[in-house]
Simulated scan of single mutants.
Amino acid sequence: MILASGSPRRRDLLANLGVPFRVVVSGEAEDRPERDPARLAGELATLKARAVAQSHPDAVVIAADTVVALGEELLGKPADEAENRAFVRRLAGRTHQVYTGVTVLSGGQESGGVERTDVTFRALTDGEIAHYARTGEGLDKAGGYGIQGVGMALVARIDGDYSNVVGFPLALVIRLLRGAGVAVWGE
């Protein structure tokens, strides 16, 4: 089995399921014209899975991609600390959506899905925003924050799958892997 993602969070979550795997990063560009966040997350996961499966046709390949949407605005990975501050400032006191697309390819069969979670940030002071951006934690994450780290202090409420906000919705992942015949949790 291959995880087509370099995300350490996805590696950890997949390892916790007891699934032996290796990592092969697809290298697919995440710059797409699609503006619908659910479709974009699904498209990117599928592109990544297909790219890796081309070189590893006998493997089960799983790929995922996370998109953060605040209304019509899509917040990718911030380029630097200043953009990270701007992202967190826009999210402060508001509810946004986190979409993660997951695709599994196995034996020429392709299955996938997209999970959505609503996340509400609490009101934040300028000092809190600056402090969080200085940690650097949000620089490699869609939306500019990580709920599993220091960023959990930014969040007032989530409605939906917590693991989706981390970037790998486990209920969906388990369903797709089992559908591809992969044993999960020592089955």
Results as ranks from 00 to 15, higher is better:
A123F: 02
M152P: 00
V166D: 04
T103R: 13
T125M: 10
L91D: 10
F168Y: 15
S111W: 00
L75E: 01
P8V: 12
D12W: 07
A15S: 15
G143Y: 01
V88Q: 06
A69K: 07
V19T: 14
D126Q: 11
A156H: 07
G108I: 12
H96V: 04
L139A: 10
L177A: 09
E34V: 12
L105K: 01
A86Q: 10
S163C: 12
V68C: 11
D31W: 03
E73D: 12
L172R: 12
H96E: 02
G136K: 10
L13N: 07
V88D: 05
H131G: 05
R116I: 02
G186W: 15
G18F: 15
A183E: 14
D140T: 11
T103M: 08
V88Y: 03
R89A: 12
A171R: 15
V24M: 13
A41W: 08
G138Y: 05
E43H: 03
L74G: 03
G113P: 08
P37V: 10
I174P: 05
V104T: 03
S111Q: 15
V52S: 15
E110T: 13
G151I: 00
V119M: 03
S106M: 01
A63E: 09
V114C: 04
L17M: 15
V25M: 08
L17T: 14
G107C: 06
V104P: 01
L3W: 13
T125C: 09
K48V: 13
V182P: 12
R89L: 04
R175S: 14
A79F: 04
G93V: 07
S111A: 15
Q97F: 03
G136E: 10
L176D: 13
R90T: 06
G149N: 08
V104Q: 07
A130T: 11
R175N: 12
A92E: 01
D58P: 04
A130M: 03
G167Y: 12
P78Y: 09
V52Y: 13
V182A: 14
G112E: 03
A41G: 05
R39I: 04
L177N: 05
A82V: 12
P8S: 13
L70C: 03
G186A: 15
N84R: 04
V155E: 01
A38V: 07
D36K: 04
V184P: 02
Q148D: 04
I174F: 02
I158M: 09
L44E: 10
G6N: 08
A153I: 00
A142C: 07
E128L: 11
G160M: 09
D80Y: 08
G138Q: 02
A64L: 02
L14F: 13
K48S: 09
G179K: 09
W185Q: 11
F121S: 04
G144H: 00
L91W: 07
A180S: 11
R90M: 06
S106K: 07
D31G: 00
N16T: 15
L47C: 09
Y99A: 01
Y162G: 06
A38T: 05
R39C: 00
M152A: 06
F87K: 09
R39Y: 00
E115M: 05
Q54F: 09
